[in-house]
Structures are given as structure tokens and as C-alpha cells.
Amino acid sequence: MGSSLYWLQCGGCSGDTWSLFGSETPDVVELLELLEIEVLWHPSLSVASPVEHRRILQRIVDGELELDLLCVEGAIIRGPGGTGMFDTFHGHPKKDLVSKLANRAGTVLAMGTCASFGGVPATGEIEATGLQFHRKVTGGFLGENFRSRSGLPVINLPGCPCHGEVMSGVLTALVTGGQLVLTANNVPEQWYGMLVHQGCVRNEYHEFRVEEHDFGEKGCLFFHMGCQAPMTYGVCNKVLWNRRNSKTSAGVPCLGCTRPDFPREHPFFKSESIAGVPLKLPIGVDRAHYLAYKGLAAAAAPQRLLRRETRV
């Protein structure tokens, strides 16, 4: 007996869809087959006519068609003035559809940071929010007490976009009866229980405080270039993107995109710092000890790193 899935796009860029399309072994089509997931609707893929689509929706809302997995991509747009009319579906606010479907769904998944916490749209004036969080605050669109039929809150899979392998992994866990342990932000600990920093190929530069001050240099991006990897949970440097790489390994600072406060206010590509030391330090470190350690480490930096002789 398979599971049914409905994929709803709200205020987003469809990046999570395309990220899922990048997942591998199995790829997205094979994954759906292996897990016996029946896609009732996906806006980029489904062939159902608009009339059929509305019939499917009506049957879900009326309880005639069981909906096991509701995947929401994009922030919920509530503006202007709470009407939701900045984002409509057949002339009605799409947010109303979100409530109706969420109330019928076995499990609700927020695919990406926008649906999880509001993301980029939540910093604008369209009254956008995440499904059950508004940035760091619980509540969001469905409210703190929302539980789907399975008794779970909305499962947040943040990332801008969410890593394709995380989405496919969590779908697999849910369909095959695996247990998900959720953290305080309702993200599954198994996929968000490590820092982006862990596994970065530039770790040795960080270790000896060999810093990058401008693009194109080699060095750690944390001290000046605004890299958020030591403060951000995500698999980026363990499960590589597109099977090949990660931003930090390609010299692009981590943007902190799985964090509820993404996008941060401070300009990207710059660290907030005093006297060359970032204000925000790696999660859990003691400032005084960290500074003492970094001072010693810098003094101990090997010449091959200082001369940038390494190919990393």
C-alpha cells in the first residue's frame, strides 16, 4: 500500500523542486517508485488538467481521497492586510488552501527555509511566514499547536534550497516507518545534527587561522568573508551538493541558509567583527578560550598554508 503526496508551491522560487531533481541513486522518479509514492499533484510535473486538479483537491478536502504527505514549498503569503490576495489560486488566497490541506494531511513537510521559517519573503512586506515558525518564533501560519493526523508538528527541512538528499532521505524515513527525532526547530536531528563547517575542505585554514580577506584568495572564510558554516546546521560538507562539491569548498562563504534567521540583516560576504575577530563564534565555544587558542594556532601555522601552497 503506497503513500499519496501533494506538492504545493507558495511564495518561493521552486528551487527546492529543482534541488530534489538533483538527488541521485535513486533519482527522484526512481525514488517515488521505490517508495510507492503516488504523486497526486506536483505543479511542475503533473499532467492532470486544471479541472481534474480541482477535483483532486476537492476530494482531499472532503476527506474522500487520503493525503499522506503534504509537501509545501515557499512561504505562506498573507498580505495585503491579512487577505492573502498577493498569492491566489483560482481567485482565492492560496493560504486558505494550505490550511485545508494541512488539516487533512498525514504528515506536513516544509520543503526549504521559506516554508519552514519564512526565509527571504518574510523579510519583505507581503506578510509572508513559515508554516509553523515565523523566523525564530514558533507559531507561523498554522500555529504552535498544529499537529497533522500523524500527531507530528510540521517537519521543517530548511535550506535555501533544501539539499535534495535531505528531502529524499526524510521521505524515505517517513514512508518506511523510520523514527524522526526533531530538534527545537522541528528539524530532523539526523540530517541537521552537524555543522556545515564539519567536513569543509578549508578546515585546516580555520584551524591555523589562515584568513581570506577578499575573493580569490585561499583561506578560511569565517574571519572576514562572513562564512556562517560554524554556526549553521546542515549536511552540505558531508553529503555533497550535486554529488560534487559545497559552497565553502568552492570558496563561497556559507550563507547560513538553514537558519531560522536567514537571510541575516548584516551584509553577506562580510563578518561582523571587532578587531578582526568575528562577533559570532562557532556554536558552543567560549570566547576567551577560543581567542587564546586561535592566537596560538596562528603562530603555529605551517608555511605551506601561509604560502598557500596547498591545492585546496
Binding site: 528551487g15 529543482w18 534541488s19 538533483g22 535555501c160 534550497p161 552540505c236 555533497l240 551538493w241 550535486n242 554529488r243 560534487r244 562539491n245 559545497s246 559552497k247 565553502t248 569548498s249 568552492a250 570558496g251 563561497v252 550563507l255 541558509c257 553577506f268
Partner: peptide, 13 residues
């Protein structure tokens, strides 16, 4: 794009 820029979608390389 991932090899040269880190990831696809969305890496400001």
C-alpha cells in the same frame, strides 16, 4: 556548476 561554483541551485560564486 557545482564543481566550479559549489552547488546548484543558489550559490553566489
Amino acid at each position: 556548476i557545482a564543481i566550479l561554483g559549489g552547488q546548484w541551485p543558489h550559490s553566489p560564486f
